[in-house]
Design a protein around this nucleic acid. Sequence first.
DNA 1: ATTTCATGCATCAATGATAGTTACATGAGT
DNA 2: ACTCATGTAACTATCATTGATGCATGAAAT
Lengths: 154, 154
Amino acid sequence: MSRDSRLSGVLHVLLHMAEQRRPLTSEALAETMRTNPVVVRRVLAGLRERGYVQSSKGHGGGWTIARDLADVSLRDIYEAIGAPALFAIGHRSEAPGCAVELAVNAVLGASLREAEERLLASFGAVTLADLSTAFHHGLAQRAAGPTTRGHHGH
Amino acid sequence: MSRDSRLSGVLHVLLHMAEQRRPLTSEALAETMRTNPVVVRRVLAGLRERGYVQSSKGHGGGWTIARDLADVSLRDIYEAIGAPALFAIGHRSEAPGCAVELAVNAVLGASLREAEERLLASFGAVTLADLSTAFHHGLAQRAAGPTTRGHHGH
DNA sequence: ATTTCATGCATCAATGATAGTTACATGAGT
DNA sequence: ACTCATGTAACTATCATTGATGCATGAAAT
């Protein structure tokens, strides 16, 4: 539990949802991730607010993807789950009174800000459709099958 | 205490040491950082092992810088303190059995690895001398004084 | 209508890492 | 000897994610 795995987890869940046209319950999704249904609902709640996914109660209820996979980037998902801190390292104090610390914060902060911008940009350049393609491509590699097929059975 | 501030803290301490030719005690260094002397010794222990700083016991003892500031990069310092995790986000499991998670890890991991490489490279491009210069430049800005002076009093 | 299923949400415990503190041993200098 | 300062172990505090439980809400099936 050392690192925040919400982005990784929600992407995992989304790809499973993308593979099934019918709604998937948070219990079913939680099983594939070996976690608790409440954890799944917690992260998906943020996506629901932005309209990326949809949830329905009662029999046959569950979660479905509400947007075209090509229209949602990893950055969109990252922001939907609350844009958690990307870096594990940071400053000692945000408002230092010491001139030395000001200089350290300035230099260190410049590197971190640049790295953050680039990472977010790289998240923005990958869509859920890309992720799905990577998944199917990986499956094809393992099965040593052709990569030109549009639809693979599960 | 949300983020790891060891790198920020140790750089702060190093710049203070660079300003004073005489050894500084961990108690004095801790005061400037508003922390505990043991915390200072803990982070500086890693630098001592690599020969970046030197410590001496007894009267007049304390910590001194043992290398030319221009020869030590921020990346050297980062590695000396144990190369702690840079990112707060990561995978759910490092050895997933699920093909979907494999794909997610591959795509997400690629972005993170690239960002890590770039961040470490940017750390490697900054030396302690650069940091010291940035500090003195900041002081000069505040004092509206010349920047061509070699030595500034403290 | 009642039962069943599934989400929505509040609340609390578990976990793991840094940060902070205390205590004591070691060694250098006066 | 006595004092100063590091070296290190051990413990507590803090904070965020994660996991778990309980209960209310609402939709579908019987």
